[in-house]
C-alpha cells in the first residue's frame, strides 16, 4: 500500500516536472519580448476568449510555408476573440537565422499582424512541451485561467495551401466559440526540431 502510494507520488511529480501540457491542462501565462520591443502576456488581452499560440521561427521551411496562412488566420480569428501569439523558441546562438534582429526583419518583410515573441532563455516552450516548429496550442479562457483545447498542426497540407481540406485551427476555434469540445484535439506534423544548446 505504502509502496503504491509512493510510486503514485513519484509518477505525479515526474508529470509535474516534465510540465508538458496535454489537452485539458491549464496553461500558465508568459511574459516575452515582442519584435516591437514591448513585453507581451496573455493578460494584456482582457477581451480575448482564448489564444492560438504558435511556436514558429524564421529558418524552418515548414514554418515559412505557413507564414501567409498565419497572417490570414489572424485576420479571421482575432475578430472572433482568439488572437494569434507567435513564439520563436529556438536559441539564436544555435540558429542565428532566428536571432531577435532577424525576427524583426522577417516580421517587417512579411507584415506580421500578430505578436512575434522571442522565448528568451527558453523557459516557455518546455512548459508547453513544444517539440518542433510550427507547433500550435489553442487555449480557451475560463475566467482568469487558460485551458489547453488543442495541440498540433495548422491544417492538413503544409506544402500547398490550396490543397488543404481540413483546417484544424479554425475548426477548433469554431467549436470553442459554440461551447463545444473540438472534434480533433491532437494532430501531428513534420517540423524542425527546436534548437537548444
Amino acid at each position: 500500500m505504502k509502496r503504491a502510494l509512493l510510486s503514485t507520488i513519484l509518477i505525479m511529480s515526474v508529470i509535474a516536472l516534465s510540465g508538458q501540457y496535454q489537452v485539458g491542462d491549464l496553461a500558465e501565462d508568459f511574459r516575452l519580448k515582442n519584435v516591437d520591443g514591448e513585453m507581451v502576456s496573455m493578460a494584456d488581452f482582457p477581451e480575448a476568449r482564448g489564444f492560438v499560440i504558435i511556436f514558429t521561427c524564421n529558418h524552418c521551411p515548414y514554418a515559412v510555408a505557413y507564414e501567409d496562412r498565419i497572417i490570414e488566420l489572424q485576420n479571421k480569428l482575432r475578430p472572433l476573440g482568439y488572437p494569434i501569439i507567435a513564439i520563436q523558441p529556438n536559441d539564436p546562438e544555435v540558429e542565428p537565422r532566428d536571432s531577435f534582429e532577424n525576427m524583426i526583419i522577417r516580421a517587417e518583410e512579411k507584415g506580421f499582424n500578430f505578436p512575434y515573441l522571442l522565448d528568451e532563455g527558453q523557459n516557455v516552450y518546455p512548459r508547453f512541451g513544444a517539440t518542433h516548429t510550427p507547433h500550435v496550442y489553442i487555449l480557451n479562457r475560463e475566467g482568469s485561467n487558460y485551458r489547453v483545447a488543442y495541440i498540433g498542426t495548422i491544417d492538413n497540407n503544409w506544402r500547398d495551401a490550396s490543397a488543404v481540406t481540413v483546417n484544424y485551427i479554425t475548426d477548433a476555434v469554431e467549436a470553442l466559440r459554440e461551447g463545444r469540445t473540438p472534434e480533433v484535439t491532437n494532430t501531428r506534423a513534420i517540423g524542425c526540431t527546436i534548437k537548444t544548446r
Binding site: H132, T153, R188, A189, I190, G191, T193
Partner: peptide, 12 residues
C-alpha cells in the same frame, strides 16, 4: 506520423 511511430512528435 503515428503509423511510423506513436512516439514521433513530427520533429526531424
Amino acid at each position: 506520423i503515428p503509423i511510423v511511430s506513436g512516439e514521433w512528435s513530427g520533429a526531424i
